[in-house]
């Protein structure tokens, strides 16, 4: 097989206070896949995500195991390139958008990569067009609706042309229309996606494959429809389908 975009091997991590967050996590994501990362609160999903671009772990962490992105190990000296390859969209867009205008914010990532002038403008223009926010380029982020801010947050990461897009709870706090619009954007992207979510219908709609992380371990890795249909597995890891939702009834 080809080199996976994301190759996590035996990742174990404990926070400085001793809390064990990850225990021997193995996860491989190949080019073009869309994978949902499911799991109850406190399962270690965010901890895992922060390892993917070396915010946690790497040289500095108190853990073992390795993370490779398209064959490049996450190490102190590879961090700039790793952070280009792994685009993380955080849950609260107010944490992600901090520049005075939408345009500046989308330019922040590529500018850190050294782009300037026309190249930079092209990147910003492309990213904003993909999420349908071109008309808002000169607005300050705090004057946008929540759904619009989330879309801009996606654009800020797309502008770095990542190899894998990591979405942390992309549908949280969105109204149904914004939720659907974001799904259409994600489905239209030609990029590998890892999506952390509690929104199981969203996982089924967007991701063909699902991984369940529970108490720091990967306990399931299978097609999403199979995972959601396994009542015993779901029940054992505090996962529940919303009332009235039947994965077998969709398509």
């Amino acid at each position: 097989m080809t080199t996976p975009v994301l190759d996590v091997r035996g990742l174990t991590f404990a926070y400085p206070d001793g809390t064990r967050a990850l225990t021997g996590v193995d996860l491989h994501v190949h080019r073009g896949e869309r994978v949902a990362l499911l799991g109850p609160n406190g399962a270690g999903k965010t901890t895992l995500v922060l390892h993917l671009n070396g915010i946690l772990g790497g040289d500095a962490g108190s853990g073992v195991g390795s993370v490779e992105v398209s064959g490049m190990p996450v190490r102190q000296d590879t961090l700039p390139e790793i952070r280009r390859r792994v685009g993380i969209v955080f849950q609260d867009p107010d944490d992600q958008l901090f520049m005075p205008t939408v345009r500046d914010d989308v330019a922040f990532g590529p500018a850190n990569l050294g782009l300037r002038g026309a190249d930079l403008e092209t990147r910003v223009g492309e990213a904003l067009a993909v999420v349908g926010m071109t008309a808002y380029a000169d607005r300050p982020p705090h004057h946008l609706s929540f759904g619009q801010r989330r879309r801009v947050a996606v654009a800020t990461v797309l502008a770095m042309r990542p190899e894998i897009l990591v979405l942390d709870e992309p549908s949280s706090n969105l109204d149904p229309a914004s939720r659907r619009e974001l799904a259409e954007i994600v489905l239209g992207l030609d990029v590998t996606v890892l999506m952390v979510t509690h929104d199981l219908p969203y996982a089924l709609q967007l991701c063909e494959r699902s991984v369940i992380l529970s108490e720091g371990r990967i306990v399931a890795d299978a097609p999403t429809r199979e995972v959601l249909g396994d009542a015993a597995l779901m029940g054992a890891h505090r996962l529940e389908l919303p009332f009235g939702f039947d994965p077998a009834a969709t398509r």
Binding site: I55, P80, D95, T156, M160
Partner: peptide
């Protein structure tokens, strides 16, 4: 959290 998000986009100590 903002600082984490900035690091994730390659912030290296100064705004471009």
């Amino acid at each position: 959290r903002v600082h984490l998000a900035m690091l994730s986009r390659g912030y290296a100590g100064s705004l471009p």
